[in-house]
Design a protein around this nucleic acid. Sequence first.
DNA 1: AAAAGTATTGAACACTCGTTCAATGTGCAT
DNA 2: ATGCACATTGAACGAGTGTTCAATACTTTT
Lengths: 175, 175
Amino acid sequence: MDLLSRHGISGVSMRSVAREAGVALGLVNYYYDDKTTLIRAALRRVDEHDLLLVAPDPSLTPEEQLRNALRRVAGKDLLTTRYLSLRLHLWALAQADEDYAQINAAAFDRYLDGLAALVSKARPELPWEGCRERAADIVVIQNGVWLTALLGVDTASIQRSIARTEQIAFAPVQE
Amino acid sequence: MDLLSRHGISGVSMRSVAREAGVALGLVNYYYDDKTTLIRAALRRVDEHDLLLVAPDPSLTPEEQLRNALRRVAGKDLLTTRYLSLRLHLWALAQADEDYAQINAAAFDRYLDGLAALVSKARPELPWEGCRERAADIVVIQNGVWLTALLGVDTASIQRSIARTEQIAFAPVQE
DNA sequence: AAAAGTATTGAACACTCGTTCAATGTGCAT
DNA sequence: ATGCACATTGAACGAGTGTTCAATACTTTT
């Protein structure tokens, strides 16, 4: 994943992976049948990590859970070049390969569902379809935040964008 | 560019470019010194195309110019898989290569400036710094729209996001 | 018509890639 | 200690890569 985030997919060769792991070339193919199997494993790992962002946490109130999930997007551990770059390369990879695209799309759907569930818990009077709508709108901005952070935009506009996601999430439900 | 958008950077070889152009391998290296020179040329072309999105059009009122620029982002010609995928691969490329990153960052700055200028024309009473702020906020959402469109989110949320950019752009200036 | 300049070709080179595989090392039950 | 399963190594192979270059075709100038 370090190699992928730093040098892109062209920097990820079986040999460079072996070197990075301090291991002989043959061993990589011993644990991973294919290069695509190896990439798939990395993809799944990142996707699982992303899902944790919207995982329910019963020790908090629904409002706190939702707010935390939204703010974590601009947290120090996520807004690193390494993670963002990794995400970007995985997206690009998914565009070029049907197989990766499916894994990515599935993870994206689960993320959207998780976020919508958080919204639903915080705004129980909002019908499920409305929660999905809000989640979708929020994800657009979140993706924008991730991407724009990579391009080096000032952090102020990122903070404003996060505030905007909260505004969408917590908007009062109209009759 | 077709090759890049369809198969990613690994699908762009001097031979595949030659084949796509219906030309012998040697000719590619005749017109482009390097492979990186060729990629740079493609990058610049896309960036110039992007700049046209926020180019001033004296035949329209400032409000119309700004509104058109914002709506063009979700236009039929831009919201194609080909263009979005191309953008994504170029971003990923810029992440892996310092040289491409600089070209990309410069183009991004010019785009931001162009958008801020449109805002300034439509809201002359807003100080320049405020225009830059609005432009930055809008770009976050626009990037999100582009990225999310690739992941296949429903067009409804994209339309709502575009509306949100207009809302930011045309917000009344408070004293 | 001859010469000069430009365009175009494809073979050749050295190199890296993913994958395979026989050989060797390591840990553990018997 | 012997045997056996698992772990690890690095050399080898064929395919694909970017780049170079002499040879050829086409245009323009003289």
